[in-house]
Every structure is written in C-alpha cells, then in structure tokens.
Design a protein around this nucleic acid. Sequence first.
DNA 1: TAGATTGTTAATCGATTAACAATC
DNA 2: TAGATTGTTAATCGATTAACAATC
Lengths: 212, 212
Amino acid sequence: MTEDINPSVPTLRRLPLYLHLLKEMESQGVFYISSTLIAKQLKFEAIQVRKDLSVTGIIGRPKMGYPIPELIKKIQEFINWDKTMNSVIIGAGALGSALLGYNGFEDSGLKIIAAFDSDPNKIGSIIRGRHVYSINDLNDFIQKNNILVGIITVPAEFAQNICNRLVEANIRSIWNFTPRVLETPENIIVKNQDPIRGLAELTYRLKKNNIE
Amino acid sequence: MTEDINPSVPTLRRLPLYLHLLKEMESQGVFYISSTLIAKQLKFEAIQVRKDLSVTGIIGRPKMGYPIPELIKKIQEFINWDKTMNSVIIGAGALGSALLGYNGFEDSGLKIIAAFDSDPNKIGSIIRGRHVYSINDLNDFIQKNNILVGIITVPAEFAQNICNRLVEANIRSIWNFTPRVLETPENIIVKNQDPIRGLAELTYRLKKNNIE
DNA sequence: TAGATTGTTAATCGATTAACAATC
DNA sequence: TAGATTGTTAATCGATTAACAATC
C-alpha cells in the first residue's frame, strides 16, 4: 500500500483551501508555487503548508516549490474530488434550495441530482434545474441512482426521521445541516455541518473585543 | 475580573450544540441534566462536557447535574447570543437568500436586516421579507443601522472587493462564506465559513471506506 | 448512608512549530 | 556557487482524557 499517512481533521479541512488557491494560480498561468507563498496567501505558516501537502504524496522541488497542476491532481485524488459523487437533498426549503443553486461544489465532484420534500406544494416542482420528489420516493431513488451522499436540510425535528429513511435505503454517507446529532449504524459516515457553530466563534470574539 | 477563562475554539464550536440540546430538554419540562446524559445525547465524553461547560462559569450540583435554565442563560451570555446583533448580507444569490430564510439563527440573536447586491434586477426587490439594496448604499446603511456583522455570500472573485467596502464602512466583523482568504486590518474579526471544507472530511472518509 | 456526579489537578495524546540536513 | 526551499526528525504547545477528592 502506498497510502499510509493519516491526515488530521484540520489538515483535511485545509486541503480545499489549498485547492481553491492553486486553481486560481493555475488559471493565471503560474505553474510552480512555494509553501512560503501559499502560506502568505492563506495566512498560514509555511511549515504547516508543507506538512499538510505531504499527506497527498506530492514531491516538491527545493528552490522551485510545488508543481501546481500535479498538486491539484494529488489533492483531488486524496480527498476523492476527482470522481463524481451523486447526492440528493432532503428538505427543499431555504437552505436546500441554496445548496441546489450553489456553484461552490464545482471543485468537488459532488452532484446534487434531485431534491425531496414532504410539502405537496413543492413536490413535482423544479428548483434550480432539479426535480423535487416526494419523500416516499426516496428509498427507490437512492437505490436506483447510485446515491452516495444524503444531504439533510429539513427542520431539526425531522432530521432523525429522514436519517432513518436514508439508512434504510443503504446510503453510504450523510451531510447533516441541522443541529441534531443523528443516531446511525457505525458504517454510515456522518458529517455535521451546522453553520451556526461558526457563528459562536465570531460572536464570542465580538463580545471579548468589546469588553477589552 | 470574573471572566478569565479562555475557551478553545473547539469548545466554542460545541457550545451551540449544548445550547440546542438544552433548549429542547427545557421545552420537554426537564430542569436538571447531568454531563453524563448530555454526553450520551451528543456522543461526547462526559468529562469533555464538564470541561466545556465550566468556561461559562456554571456551577453544577453533584448527583443532580446542571440547572438547565441557568445553563442556557450562561451559555448565551458567554457567546454573546443574549443580545441582538444586526447584520447585513452582501450577495443575494442562492446562498444569501437561504441565509435570509434560515430559521436556525433564532437561537443566536443574529438579525439579518437587509441584503445588498449589484444586480439591477435584484435591487429594489424583497427577499424573505428583507429589502435588497444597491451595494453603493452599503456604507451609509452600515453606519446608520448599527450593523455589527457583514455576511459575504458573493461569488469568490468579488469577496475581497466587498470586504474592502465593509472595512471602509467600519464594520466590526465579517462572516465570510466564500473560499477566499480576506485581507483585513487586524481589528476586524473575520470568520471563514466555506461549507465545502466539511465536504472534504466526508469524501475522504468515503474513499477510505471504499478501499478498506 | 451509599453512590452518583461535579470540578480540579495531572497525564496523555495529537497537532503545530522549530531545527536542520539534503537538494536544486 | 550561494541561497532558497523541501522534507524529516524532534520539540513544543494545546486539547482531550484520566484520576480522584469533594459534595450532595
């Protein structure tokens, strides 16, 4: 086996930032970049950049830095963004609709191919080019369309119920945008992504700034 | 000074999860909860729960646990969610509209009172009850309406430009939903919140699961 | 009372940072 | 070549976890 390095979660979370920067640099016609310059752009430490990038197996060249096209490829492979992953959204409300229209997924290989909702007014409609189906069709759809990721954007109180349905349909992973912690079998990958958690960081610092 | 404890970032990010759970318990008529039970619900360790909660200054009672109403209040005070904070959104696209309609902010005291965009078709419209103004009116609006937080949901390539305008208007903090790292003066609080960073964690584990 | 729970102090674990030889 | 940069190994820093006395 070549892949032996276990990246830390912070490293995994930084890799998309590198990827985004590198694609930008590449589009500007730059083909080598040093850890020093990456660090400056992203406000990291150069040594941290080198440590992070090393997990992908990239080999840099002293004095030159890292070859950008190759590094992009290595990062994409490492976090599995070089492949298309089909997903569905459950909950076609504000947040669900936003994710359907969000172009930030371009870099990632994630395709949201349908939405599901329980509201009869929404079922049958098309949001941002994707059909909205009844939640009752969820199980069938997942099994027939090779859906790897279920994205939960329903109100918190329905999150566990939707989760159960996804598990029944043999989903592989769940991206949970609600503040509920979900009960799942061990083999299901769950990533919680409640944006409000980041807000606490910001507002705490606002308060602290104000006091001092 | 009573507040001497510096919470770690992970602790700050967990506090909203406790808050959410506690509010739920309270609405069910429960008034005391132990760290053991909180840990079980959130899949944490009890000792971690106690460590986290201690930053708020809460005093628990052996055998009983923590008084829920008081703990809710302490957490809210600690992360500054007991006060209303006015904010504006810049970028009334998919993500911006979603945040305008998102009811997850109820717990937090954050009020989004207006949106701004550069698209003449959007300017003058109303999205989820909030007016969309021209970006040219941003500076005036911020200064006149005690805006503490600027939420950036424009496409990445415009993020720095919007950031500069916010800084000019003497904004106190920026919640940045783009993958760009912003250049700001030191006194501005910036919180980056690109949802795609969490996706990397999920997709990496998907890949790893598949290989093994 | 006995036993569950808190909260403090110490130990462990893991991530970041530093030092520096190797290299182009 | 000289000097900038990589990548490895070690040191530091900080967060999590463990141990346990105090308490209800």
